[in-house]
Design a binder for these strands. Structure first.
Lengths: 234, 234
DNA sequence: TTCGTTGGCGAACGCCGTTCTACTAGCGAA
DNA sequence: TTCGCTAGTAGAACGGCGTTCGCCAACGAA
């Protein structure tokens, strides 16, 4: 929309900003990811993306069915960032932990994109590829079939939910507040609850405030993976 | 808004529908919950609630700071539905499983309210009460302090995420589609993926489609609680 | 060259959360 | 009883949203 570039008014107004046929699904997804990382899902609007591409919102609908489909595309693009290992039966537990930790990190790297994973079933090409590898690793480890299937569901929920929780900090930063300060206030609130009604909360206030996202995520993932390992027969 | 009740046009227009001073925080929360259950978070708007109460959106702001605060109030109201047991050390594992299962059910009973739990830290009076009881039960069971604190975080995420996933079905029903049919289509999609690239997915397609929300939730909860039990010293 | 198809996009529709402002009902004080 | 003040009520409007419509320009095939 460079707005300058004087031209005689009798010329037909050509090429508003970008050359014709310049929009594409990839360009939209790329722009969408950029906005997503910078402003989160709430800041991601068709208009915002269109502006990023120097056009109006209506133009996007030639390449994308609507915002829902775009969110699906964005999510699947993010899944691309997760490295998929060659399954090695001897190291199944290590591999699955690493894979899901990488997934967690990929989501966290991209704002609160995880919010679109919950509330819909991710079935993009990269998501199903990741599921396939996950299940193959667990099968190589000897986890029973039904446990594999359900574990996939449960871990998907856990990874997404944890990434969303982490995105709160990013949200606070965007609105100019310091996340550390916020969490200190939360801890203070818990510590100052009336002790006669909340003795355990008071007692554990230190532990409640201990550890960051990574540590907490690893703790929960260990519980789950450990439980799966316990189900390996023999 | 009974819309009838003819009155002479020279009368000052009195009492539009409801008597004056009739709005209150409780009335707004009650109306909000009704809308929430019927139409979900997406259908919940200040205007919609105001209509429900026979007034305009601006009137709500005398009792509630904004939509965010209202969502907090709604969530805490839902937590009220969770029965809190008297902690009994001998039955800690049973008690904590029951408590969190009840929480899961309460969330599922109220549309996709769980979506507001993720992305913010629930600190309403009823939420902190439930946390206190949860931690007390785990402490009675001998779970180490740091494990208790982190488990509370992790289970909160898990319960919410699972409830959200379940709300997909409700969402489908609202838009006139049959959830069972939808999930059949999903299963069909997985089964028909190219077998040479997705052998494990094909192999486990039956298991992937087996079991409803309750069964899957219980499976994951068992993994977590079992993991906690394993951390009890002695 | 012509014509049908398709991408681009300005304008508009009906929603949303929130704020501004005027008004008025009800209350305590005189 | 009357008066003035306060706090609740709500109409109108602002700026944003996703999406649709309809026109125009550009391109590929004939």
């Amino acid at each position: 929309m460079t707005a300058g570039q004087f031209e005689p008014p009798w010329w037909t107004p050509r090429k508003t900003g970008t050359p014709r046929r310049s929009l594409s699904r990839e360009a939209i997804v790329t722009a969408g990811l950029k906005v997503l990382r910078a402003e989160g899902v709430d800041g991601l609007s068709m208009r915002r993306i269109a502006t990023e591409l120097g056009t109006g919102p209506a133009s996007l609908y030639a390449h994308v069915a609507g915002k829902d489909e775009l969110l699906d595309l964005l999510f699947d693009q993010v899944v691309t960032e997760v490295p998929l290992p060659e399954p090695d039966p001897a190291r199944w537990r290590e591999q699955i932990t690493e894979l899901w930790t990488h997934a967690h990190e990929a989501l966290r790297r991209n704002g609160d994109i995880a919010r679109v994973a919950l509330g819909r079933v991710p079935m993009g090409p990269n998501a199903v590829r990741m599921s396939e590898v996950s299940m193959t690793i667990l099968r190589a480890g000897g986890v029973p079939p039904q446990a594999i299937a359900w574990a996939l569901d449960i871990v998907g929920l856990y990874v997404s939910a944890s990434a969303i929780e982490d995105a709160i900090s990013r949200q606070l930063e965007r609105s100019g507040r310091d996340p550390a300060e916020y969490y200190n206030q939360v801890a203070e609130y818990f510590k100052n609850l009336p002790a006669e009604h909340f003795p355990t909360t008071a007692l554990l206030s230190r532990e409640l405030a201990t550890g960051g996202r990574d540590e907490r995520f690893a703790f929960g993932l260990d519980l789950i993976v450990g439980g799966l390992a316990a189900q390996v027969p023999g």
